[in-house]
C-alpha cells in the first residue's frame, strides 16, 4: 500500500469488526473479545505492512504471517476477505458444517500458513520460516501474532530464546496485550509483568504501542525490522472486545454467541462508538 491513508484503514477495521460480530451471531458464536482486540493489528498488518499477494498466496518471496492466537480466527477471516484472499460471502459460513472456516484456522484457507489454535506454536513456526528465508536469501519476513495469555506457554519462551540466539532480525512477534484470558486477567491467572523487561532479557528489541492507534501502529511496523540483528516484539496495548461498548474490557467477552437482539445492539454500539471517536 503506498501513501497509506489512515481513513482507509479505519474504514476497513470497522468493516472487519462488523463481520466479526456477524460471525459471533452464528449459532456457534465466536471468540469475540480477542478477535476485536486484534482487529486493528490485523488490519494494519495486512493493509500496510505484510508483503503478500492474494492472487498468489504461495509467492516464495512473501512475508509470513502466523496467527498464533488461532482463536481470533474470525478477525483473520474478515481481514483475508477484505484483501481478496477468500470471498467475502464465505465469512457467512464461519463454523458451519462443511465450511473451511473453523474456529481455529486451517491451512487450506488461502492466506493461512499454518493451522493454529493450540497456543504456543506460532512463534516457533514463524522463527523457522524466518530462518529459512535468511538461509535461502529471500527477502521474506515472518510475523506471529500472539495472545498475551498465550505467553504462559513454555514453548513461546523456547522460541523466544532460540530466535534471539540465532539473530533472526526478520522475525516480529506481535503481542495482543488485552490483559484478559478466559478465567480472568492475565495478572490474576499467571502474571506476565514486567513483560517488556522479560522480552528484553530474552534478547529481543521491544516496541510498545497503542494497539488501536492506527497511525502509531503504522509508524511502528514500518520501522521494522530492527537493525540490531535481533528479533522484535511489538507489545500492543489493546482492549478486549474493542469497539463494542458492551463487550469492552470484560471477562465475559472472551467467547460470545450473540442472539439476534444482542447482535443488533452490538452493531449499534460499534457504530456509535465509531462516530464518537471520529
Amino acid at each position: 500500500m503506498t501513501g497509506t491513508d489512515i481513513g482507509v484503514l479505519a474504514e476497513r477495521a470497522h468493516r472487519v469488526r462488523e463481520r466479526v460480530l456477524e460471525m459471533g451471531a452464528g449459532e456457534n458464536g465466536a471468540h469475540l473479545g480477542g478477535s476485536l482486540s486484534a482487529a486493528d493489528l490485523l488490519t494494519v498488518l495486512y493493509g500496510a505492512v505484510l508483503r503478500v499477494r492474494p492472487d498468489r498466496p504461495d509467492w516464495p518471496d512473501r512475508d509470513w504471517f502466523v496467527l498464533s492466537k488461532g482463536h481470533a480466527s474470525a478477525a483473520l477471516y474478515a481481514v483475508l476477505a477484505e484483501h481478496g484472499f477468500i470471498p467475502s460471502e464465505e465469512c457467512a459460513d464461519y463454523a458451519k458444517p462443511g465450511s473451511r472456516l473453523a474456529g481455529h484456522p486451517l491451512r487450506r484457507v488461502e492466506g493461512v500458513e499454518f493451522p493454529t489454535g493450540s497456543l504456543g506454536h506460532g512463534l516457533s513456526l514463524a522463527a523457522g520460516a524466518a530462518l529459512a528465508a535468511r538461509r535461502l536469501g529471500r527477502p521474506s519476513r515472518a510475523f506471529a501474532l500472539l495472545g498475551d495469555g498465550e505467553l504462559q506457554e513454555g514453548s513461546v519462551w523456547e522460541a523466544a530464546m532460540g530466535a534471539a540466539h540465532h539473530g533472526l532480525d526478520n522475525l516480529v512477534a506481535v503481542v495482543d496485550r488485552n490483559g484478559w484470558q478466559i478465567s480472568g486477567t492475565t495478572e490474576e491467572c499467571l502474571s506476565l509483568e514486567p513483560l517488556a523487561d522479560r522480552w528484553r532479557a530474552f534478547g529481543w528489541a521491544v516496541r510498545e504501542v497503542d494497539g488501536h492507534d492506527l497511525s502509531a501502529l503504522l509508524a511502528t511496523f514500518t520501522a521494522l525490522p530492527d537493525t540490531g540483528g535481533r528479533p522484535t516484539v511489538v507489545l500492543a496495548r489493546t482492549v478486549k472486545g474493542r469497539g463494542v461498548p458492551m463487550l469492552e474490557d470484560r471477562k465475559k467477552s472472551h467467547y460470545v454467541q450473540l442472539t439476534p437482539k444482542l447482535h443488533v445492539r452490538a452493531l449499534a454500539g460499534l457504530r456509535n462508538r465509531r462516530e464518537r471517536d471520529q
Binding site: 500458513e113 499454518f114 522463527a127 523457522g128 535461502l136 514453548s155 522460541a159 530464546m161 532460540g162
Partner: peptide, 16 residues
Amino acid sequence: AEANLMGMAAGMAAAG
C-alpha cells in the same frame, strides 16, 4: 528445546 525444535523445523520445511 524439543517443542521449538519441531515447530521451527515445520516452519523451515514450509518455507522450502
